[in-house]
Design a protein around this nucleic acid. Sequence first.
DNA 1: ATGAAAGCGCTAACAG
DNA 2: CTGTTAGCGCTTTCAT
Lengths: 346, 346
Amino acid sequence: MPGPIPSSRDARPTLEAVAARAGVSRATASRVVNGGAGVRQPLVDQVRKAVEELGYIPNHAARTLVTRRNGAVAVIIDEPEFRIFSDPFFSRQIRGISRELNVYDAQLVLLLVEGSGDFDRITRYLAGGHVDGVLAFSLHTDDELPAVIRRFRVPTVYGGRPGTPGDASEHAVPYVDCDNRGGAREAVRHLVSLGRQRIGHIAGPRDQTSALDRIDGYRDVLPDSDPSLVVEGDFTVEGGARAMAELLERHPGLDAVFASNDLMASGALRVLGEHGRRVPEDVALVGFDDMEQVAEATDPPLTTVRQDVEGMGRLMVRLLMQRLNGEGQETDSVITPTELVRRVSA
Amino acid sequence: MPGPIPSSRDARPTLEAVAARAGVSRATASRVVNGGAGVRQPLVDQVRKAVEELGYIPNHAARTLVTRRNGAVAVIIDEPEFRIFSDPFFSRQIRGISRELNVYDAQLVLLLVEGSGDFDRITRYLAGGHVDGVLAFSLHTDDELPAVIRRFRVPTVYGGRPGTPGDASEHAVPYVDCDNRGGAREAVRHLVSLGRQRIGHIAGPRDQTSALDRIDGYRDVLPDSDPSLVVEGDFTVEGGARAMAELLERHPGLDAVFASNDLMASGALRVLGEHGRRVPEDVALVGFDDMEQVAEATDPPLTTVRQDVEGMGRLMVRLLMQRLNGEGQETDSVITPTELVRRVSA
DNA sequence: ATGAAAGCGCTAACAG
DNA sequence: CTGTTAGCGCTTTCAT
């Protein structure tokens, strides 16, 4: 079905050509191309036919120049190397975003931030109005991005609750996050329901709200637990392994662990094995994220807390589009539910 | 260092304003903004100053409209769900691409293809000339993308050797790939050097050239090996596990396995364990890719073949830019070297 | 070396 | 309902 699209990129037909062929004015042709509202059917048909025959494709730049809309959204990911390398989390979220963006016929411009150097570049980019909106991830407490976003008033939705104070004013930027705290509670409650008495927690880095929220969830269920039962990891396999070793040293009698993500849980699993602990018999283990790749591949497979990462991505796009269309400047943030997935480790 | 950039996206200063402030014509201002060649120093300085003071940022759409360049490159990934979900490979390659694109001050537009439906969309997008060039991945043998690319003559570089015949004419599209065959040879030779006698191979899907090339590498070293020693997997953990089980059933006496990627190797590892085989004592195992996340997290850590994924991404961008700048229409493909990384599994 | 002027392709008032 | 008319902001001959 090759269709009549011209075989070269150059010398593409313009609206002018379409109008001429259809025997109408450029304005009418434009109207038809943009939906055809308020144009009589016969003319609509003529124009459509001309478009078809000529293989007309609108020139985006020209359109953007006058409408000041560019049909593109930037996805900004500010993440230290190790995490984007080792965490399918982003691939998934981006897939959700991409899918939903397609619905709106919008393009996805990917901006990876690696250091303050990149920051200027991104500032200029956003300031230049090259995109209609922004989807930003991994805001760390010391991030400069929120300031830029506020300054240029770029419509934005955050992925994950931002660590910055986030002025509660009318300009608050909405975010989409899963119920980290509730999920953590569920995980720990599950461990408790298993009859476990000494439950440790391998936390994520303190500069990420998700890690903080999960610690809170842990404490919600175990308010009187010994503080030394919580060790900070860095969301990597190795970090999880180190934390587990530390935990074991401090509390040899430990009988359960809630790790703040699956990667750390897998590291913990290995260390547990090395120290002769059977899982789940001696020590029950629950992770977080439900990254199948990790959670199902470990031995034993991990019981973990699932979050709908793709759905969260789609949601972010929807919220952004609402803002762009002016429907409710007062968009609210959304917290999505989590679900405990029982496998073998607990 | 906030700088003088205006605090709102609207009402941005135009070149006109800059020219007025600098007391020159728009043409001169434009020249300065674009490098300042052929403009006397004093004027250059005046314009630069005005740009600075006004916080002028060029309007991309206007520029694109006249230059027909848009400073953007599309990255097209056509990959069934499971792989992008479970393979850090892309994250890494994209990071390399992103970094190198920054060097050229070009934007990255991400296009995820999920089915034939998406195909129309992408065709229209490319035909619309929204991007200056394309970086395309995961061409399967039955892909429609190459046809579109050829038809519209979009400057393109493939990631990985495409499965399509790839007319050897002057319009051949260059690609960047690692030395899959050589890497596989190295892996298998290593196994041989360890004194292993019955070496199996868990291959990747037949519609991917990387999998095919690795099989070839295996056969290069073991030309007379029993065909039943090669089992096809699908590059996933589960697929690797199934393949390993099959292999064990066919050849209980197996003493080594070369898996076509690390994910499958990790699945194989688990099955090996379940069947009471010690690794590497009873069965030596080598993977491919060196995805640290997987290769270092398994127990024992995997010996594997490393490919410089990020470097390959950067290389793709460089080749594309060469094409765009007309330097050498006859860009050649590049095969990057691999390296055996010895850990514990072999 | 610099400026004037002519568009790039499209949309959006505004008339009719 | 349709056509005419202005630009959107920038680059690029072409004169000077």
